[in-house]
Computed example of a mutant assay.
Amino acid sequence: MKRELILLRHAHAESAKSGDDDTARALSARGVVEAKGAGQWLKSHAALPARVLCSPALRARQTLEHALGTVPVTLEPRIFEATAGELVALIDENADAGRLLLVGHNPGFETLVALLATGQSGDFRGVPPAGVVWIELDGAVEPGAGKLKAFWAP
């Protein structure tokens, strides 16, 4: 079964302050511009998802809002600090969505991209803030099974 996975990494956020809750960090002014750019790219490439799963972290939710406005979304706590394996499990759980958008974080996203595209899960720095990765999947979600359809970075 062919399906598509789109990863949207959260845009630049305000710096963390000692003792603050990391999930409460908001987007910076730069991040707002980046998120809007990601949304323009997604819309111009007709890359709108059938289902959206978003990390509950404020910066991820704000990235989604600035990118796509108000869309039906499921806040998925497992995305925050997820490993590539945990993200694969989420993707598998949503196999019925023809095009799934995950909004979240590194290092899980960049490791997942490397794993799906190359079969390797080494140290990669390939998904910058507000970066969009569009992957085609044909069958099982396993190492090397993804084909990179498009990539965008601000």
Rank of each mutant, 00 (worst) to 15 (best):
V133T: 14
D22R: 08
N94K: 06
S44P: 02
A114L: 14
K149E: 09
C54Q: 01
L90F: 01
A16V: 12
G104W: 04
A47R: 12
G104A: 13
S44M: 04
I91P: 07
G139T: 08
A84N: 00
D21R: 12
G126A: 13
P56H: 00
L137H: 04
A47M: 12
V132T: 06
S18E: 14
S18K: 11
V113I: 09
R59G: 02
L116E: 05
K2I: 03
D21Q: 04
F80M: 08
P143I: 03
A150T: 08
L112A: 07
I79S: 02
V32E: 10
Q120W: 02
A60H: 05
G131C: 09
L100W: 14
D22H: 12
R78M: 13
V133Y: 08
A67R: 12
I135G: 11
F109L: 05
I91S: 03
E65A: 13
E136I: 01
G19W: 08
P128L: 01
L112H: 14
T23A: 14
R59K: 03
P49F: 03
V71G: 12
L100A: 13
G122M: 11
A117W: 01
R9G: 05
D92A: 10
R51W: 02
D123L: 14
G146N: 15
A11L: 11
K147Q: 13
F80P: 07
K36F: 01
A24S: 10
P72C: 00
L87C: 07
E76W: 13
V88W: 05
L64W: 10
F80L: 13
D21Y: 02
A26G: 02
G37A: 15
W134Q: 05
A35Q: 07
S121H: 09
A16L: 15
V88N: 07
E76K: 07
N94Y: 09
G19Q: 10
R51C: 08
A50Q: 15
F124M: 04
R125P: 07
A24V: 01
G31M: 01
G131A: 09
P77F: 11
P154V: 03
K36V: 06
T70E: 13
A57E: 04
V132M: 06
L137F: 01
A114Y: 00
G139R: 06
L53V: 14
L42F: 06
E142F: 00
V133K: 08
A82W: 04
G31V: 01
A57F: 05
E93L: 06
S15R: 11
L68G: 11
S18L: 15
G69F: 15
R99E: 02
I79M: 02
V32S: 00
E14S: 08
D96Q: 15
D138I: 03
H45C: 14
A47W: 09
T83P: 03
A140M: 05
K36C: 06
K17Q: 12
V141N: 12
D138L: 05
